[in-house]
């Protein structure tokens, strides 16, 4: 393809460039990466900011370090959950994990993804909960179920599942795991 040719030209130029700045002993030197970098965006669990952060605070959530997110956002999340979902409206309303809005909001506010180094890694597979995130995990339906499903996961079925259950292309079993582009 034409583009590949173009791109390889770019790389050619890039490498020539590097050669110019190489040391005499020919050990490749790293490019200059100096400078201070500041957080623009961050993510732990999928779609948390989109779903649970209230208008006007989304930017703040993206630039609050996770260790401080709980203190800053837990009560917001709880309010948002109870307004969003009739199945979490009161303290007695609980979700599939047995958590009410306050407790669940508290868990979600610290937006990190917990990953098990010992067992199965999955967002939710029917048995394991939040031990990682696989490419094939239906994370949105899991989150919707935990928000709208109530105690048995089926209280508001029309909001508990987006009815898209899998990717449209098979993943690889070997590195880099993600499928080739379309």
């Amino acid at each position: 393809m034409k583009y590949i040719k173009i791109l390889s030209l770019v790389f050619l130029a890039a490498f020539t460039l590097q050669n110019c700045s190489d040391d005499e002993d020919n050990t490749p030197t790293l490019p200059d990466f100096s400078g201070t970098f500041t957080t623009a965006d961050q993510m732990g669990r999928p779609a948390i900011n989109t779903v649970l952060v209230t208008d006007g605070r989304k930017d703040a959530f993206n630039t609050t370090v996770p260790s401080q997110q709980g203190a800053a956002f837990a009560s917001d999340f709880a309010t948002r959950l109870s307004t969003l979902s009739p199945t979490l409206a009161t303290d007695d309303d609980r979700n599939l994990l047995g958590l009410n809005a306050t407790e669940f909001g508290g868990v979600l506010a610290t937006d990190v993804l917990t990953v098990s180094l010992d067992g199965t890694t999955t967002f939710f597979d029917g048995t394991n909960v939040l031990t990682g995130r696989n490419l094939s995990d239906d994370v949105i339906t899991t989150e919707l179920t935990l928000i709208f499903g109530g105690e048995d996961g089926s209280e508001i079925p029309t909001l508990s599942d987006d009815n898209v259950d899998a990717n449209d292309k098979a993943f690889l079993t070997v590195f880099p795991y993600l499928a080739e582009p379309f």
Binding site: F37, T39, D41, T114, V115
Partner: peptide, 14 residues
């Protein structure tokens, strides 16, 4: 090695 880790990703700009 073992146990659980917490992980998240950030993009940082210069």
């Amino acid at each position: 090695g073992t146990g659980n880790i917490n992980t998240w990703v950030e993009t940082k700009t210069r």
